[in-house]
């Protein structure tokens, strides 16, 4: 099993408000899971906790990644082991070129895997090879990280970084928010291009529209910090037609 989350409880580090309240989730290699849920259900918190953002504190439960305790690791350690977070709002870093940024990142991951670092020329070649798969504009590499990028370009840049780092688990944190349909297709195309038997995806989203392009294997409904229903792709259609209310209601009466 690639990811095994058991009884995960987490709260906001500042203030202590509980968000995740006993979440269970198992992801096998090569699977694509979708996490859906209404606003405030804890979707983004789950992404943040798995990636190691210190805004949240885990109070109970465990998360194993590839057999190791994920929660013990620093964010960069998780990244080096193969956890990739596609940000809802990719961050701007003025003055730092995408190229330098990604070369540093790629070599950090290579070091973890016991591979020799790529020099400038090797990296260039590697970067070019990945670029064609995603139809990236070449000048994006020379520009500062996400500075002056449009919303779509930022997301495309995140997909490109994903391709370069070749992670085992990709967490898409509401990547589709604020995207027009063309940008949405870019993200979906990127994900589909990177799907492989060794790579799993956790697609966190509020709407079904991204999932129409990325057909997930498993769909979960997150509500009040727990997964209240799981199923196949048919669950997406059900949610689209009926909304979250019915599932929430049946969950609450069931309690």
């Amino acid at each position: 099993m690639l990811l095994n989350v058991e009884n995960l409880h987490a709260e906001v580090a500042e203030g202590g408000q509980p968000i995740l309240k006993g979440l269970n989730l198992q992801v096998e290699p090569g699977e694509v899971h979708a996490i859906m849920g209404p606003n405030g259900a804890g979707k983004s918190t789950l992404s943040s906790v798995l990636a190691g953002r210190d805004d949240y504190e885990v109070t109970d439960g465990s998360a194993q990644f590839d057999g190791e305790d994920l929660l013990e690791m620093d964010p960069e350690e998780r990244a080096r082991k193969g956890v990739f977070l596609a940000f809802q709002y990719p961050v701007e870093i003025p003055g730092v070129s995408n190229k330098l940024f990604m070369q540093t990142a790629v070599n950090a991951v290579r070091e973890e895997r016991g591979q020799a670092p790529l020099d400038m020329f090797d990296f260039d070649e590697y970067a070019q090879s990945k670029m064609s798969t995603l139809n990236m504009r070449p000048d994006l590499l020379e520009r500062s990280v996400n500075v002056g990028f449009s919303g779509g370009e930022k997301k495309r840049n995140d997909m490109y970084q994903m391709a370069l780092l070749e992670p085992k688990l990709c967490i898409m944190d509401e990547t589709d928010s604020g995207l027009d349909i063309d940008a949405l297709k870019v993200v979906a195309k990127g994900v589909n291009a990177l799907r492989s038997p060794e790579r799993s995806f956790l697609v966190v989203t509020h709407y079904q529209r991204l999932l129409d392009y990325i057909k997930p294997d498993v769909v979960h409904v997150l509500y009040d910090g727990k997964i209240v229903k799981s199923g196949g792709f048919e669950l997406v259609e059900k949610l689209e037609n009926e909304g979250y209310d019915q599932i929430i209601q049946s969950h609450e009466t069931g309690q």
Binding site: R53, P75, F87, V91, I93, A105, L165
Partner: peptide, 15 residues
């Protein structure tokens, strides 16, 4: 957020 973004891409805090 900048530090976390870098760390998420595997880059150490000092770097």
């Amino acid at each position: 957020d900048q530090l976390f973004y870098c760390q998420q891409r595997g880059i150490s805090e000092q770097d």
